[in-house]
Amino acid sequence: MGEFKHKDKNIENKKHVKNKTVAEKIFQETWDWLYSFEVIRKHKPLKINSKQDFLRRSQETGAGIGKKQLRKAFSIHCNSERYLRNAAKGGFRYDIDFNQDEEISEEHQQNFINALKEKKKFISRAKAYARRKEEKQRQYEKRKLENQQDRNKDNGSRLQFKPRKNNNSDIKIAVKKSRRG
């Protein structure tokens, strides 16, 4: 019987490799294709109905980007804080080739400002939750360490002999020590 060479090394290498699902690979390709456009890279406000332009360009170039993938990528991109900040400033919308299209209306600008406020609230709540969770973890670790130190003070003995009466006779029985002492 032959032995496997470097068996442990191969197992360690497999632990560190994360296989992406097909959907993740496809979405990464979509994202890479979208970021090849300057208007997307700079997070500038997009022209209304620009998804159709991107879909058309995808079909022309043979990139093979589908409607669902594009919709998901646009949802993530257009709800990013950087995009909302640029759109809330006002100015012009841009088309796929980074040409100025039309000016952002007051109503749309107000919608972008409101969306940005909501995004910031959500981010601050998420950060506060993370801080609370970290603090609870630190307190838990501190209590755990204190309990461990208390146990070490007892010389590691978890058994304590106490006299107990059993059938009217004095017999010492080993009883598990309670945590409270």
Rank of each mutant, 00 (worst) to 15 (best):
G2Q: 07
E3G: 07
H6W: 04
E12R: 11
N13R: 13
K14V: 06
V17W: 06
I26L: 15
F27C: 02
E29I: 05
D32I: 07
D32Q: 09
W33A: 02
Y35T: 06
S36T: 11
F37E: 07
F37Y: 15
F37C: 08
V39Q: 05
V39P: 05
V39R: 03
R41D: 08
R41M: 11
K42D: 09
H43L: 00
K44P: 01
P45I: 06
I48D: 09
S50P: 01
Q52W: 11
D53G: 05
L55M: 14
L55E: 12
R56K: 13
R56M: 10
S58M: 13
S58N: 11
Q59R: 12
E60M: 10
E60Q: 14
T61C: 12
Q69D: 12
L70D: 08
R71M: 08
K72G: 00
S75D: 12
I76T: 13
H77M: 10
C78V: 04
S80P: 03
R82Y: 04
R82G: 01
Y83M: 03
L84G: 02
L84T: 01
N86I: 03
G90V: 03
G90K: 01
G91W: 03
F92K: 00
I96M: 09
D97M: 08
F98L: 15
Q100N: 00
D101P: 00
I104T: 04
E107P: 00
Q109T: 01
N111D: 05
I113V: 11
A115K: 07
L116A: 04
K117Q: 04
K117N: 08
K120W: 00
F122H: 03
F122Q: 10
F122P: 00
R125S: 09
R125E: 15
A126K: 15
A126Y: 04
K127P: 01
K127Y: 09
K127H: 12
Y129C: 12
Y129I: 09
R132V: 01
E135N: 14
R138G: 01
E141P: 02
E141M: 11
K142D: 15
R143Y: 09
R143L: 15
E146V: 06
D154F: 05
G156P: 03
R158Y: 09
L159G: 02
K162G: 06
K162D: 03
N167W: 05
N167L: 10
S169G: 00
D170G: 01
D170V: 11
D170W: 10
K177S: 12
